[in-house]
């Protein structure tokens, strides 16, 4: 358990007045407050640190104790243990806002749990903690709407994943976060979808892209080929004299449009003409004849 320099965290000197501590705390809180830094884990961590520092330094009793034991806080534990039982009862009965697990081990060892005196803690008691989770899925998994059961903090949550959900898209599930305190509402659960694409298709929203190789003779003379789409194969007519890099659009053969049931984007196919290799003597001869004709 490392010693934490709360003065350093708030950027104040050891002789700072209560007013200076309050001002320093407010300045840092305005910078790192979770409401102003959504989805920013670094800011959340920093906010907890400055909050903890403020809890200690803004309460004269705690500050005195912290100043007394300081870096040698371990020696203070003997003293603490004698008083711990008495204090634990006090802290637990008053505990609001941050749960004790949000305090550092150092804070716990010195003060036994969360203290409450500020208005800030008072308000945070109403709503539980928001949970953030990542769900890794394959592109194929989000081609159709499906239900999945997730286990978050030992709770099973039945989730409907709409077809066409985007990579890195967040969805909020109301009330599935941490339990509210003192009868307050539960926090929310935010799930970020990480979608791995292991298919031959590239995706931009509901539009899919793929490359198809064309045989030289089919590209010159035309014909029919079978191509893969996301949900099966389709037969395509190739026009004679099709050029390399020609693009064709297959309407409605792309990816589902998010939250628009039955609506699909397009599939854009790019033809790549593959020239034959290892030509026989006869083929070379015939190509030369063709060359002479041009």
């Amino acid at each position: 358990m490392a010693f934490i320099d709360y003065y350093k965290i708030l950027g104040v000197s050891k002789s700072a007045t209560e007013k200076e501590i309050k001002a320093a705390y407010r300045k840092l809180a305005r910078k790192y407050h979770p409401d102003l830094n959504p989805d920013n884990k670094e800011a959340e961590k920093k906010f907890k640190e400055i909050n903890e520092a403020n809890e200690v330094l803004s309460a004269p009793e705690n500050r005195k104790k912290y100043d007394k034991y300081g870096k040698d806080w371990k020696h203070g534990e003997v003293y603490e243990k004698a008083q711990q039982q008495q204090q634990q009862t006090h802290y637990q009965s008053n505990q609001q806002g941050f749960s004790s697990q949000e305090y550092s081990d150092f804070f716990e060892s010195m003060f036994g749990g969360a203290r409450t005196s500020s208005r800030q803690s008072h308000y945070q008691k109403f709503k539980g903690q928001d949970f953030h989770a990542e769900l890794h899925l394959d592109l194929k998994d989000v081609y159709t709407t499906h239900k999945q059961v997730l286990t978050v903090n030992n709770k099973n949550i039945r989730l409907t994943i709409p077809a066409g959900v985007e990579n890195a898209q967040d969805i909020k599930i109301k009330g599935k976060g941490g339990a509210g305190l003192n009868g307050g509402p539960n926090g929310d659960l935010y799930i970020k979808f990480i979608i791995n694409n292991r298919t031959q298709f590239k995706r931009d929203g509901s539009t899919l892209y793929s490359n198809v190789n064309l045989d030289l003779y089919i590209s010159l003379l035309g014909g029919e080929i079978m191509v893969d789409t996301f949900d099966g194969k389709v037969k395509l007519k190739i026009a004679p004299e099709t050029q390399n890099e020609t693009k064709v659009k297959l309407k409605g053969k792309g990816f589902p449009v998010y939250k628009k049931e039955g609506e699909f984007g397009d599939l854009i196919i790019t033809y790549h003409i593959k020239n034959p290799t290892n030509l026989s003597e006869k083929e070379i001869e015939l190509f030369k004849e063709l060359q002479k004709l041009r």
């Binding site: 809180a29 407050h33 409401d35 208005r119 308000y123």
Partner: peptide
């Protein structure tokens, strides 16, 4: 609107942001 309202209360009381400031935030 409760979630937003709670956020506004926190900004107002915890961070001393006034109403105009909350609007900007």
């Amino acid at each position: 609107q409760i979630s937003d309202l709670e956020k506004m209360i926190r900004l107002y009381h915890e961070l001393n942001v006034n109403i105009e400031g909350i609007d900007v935030v």
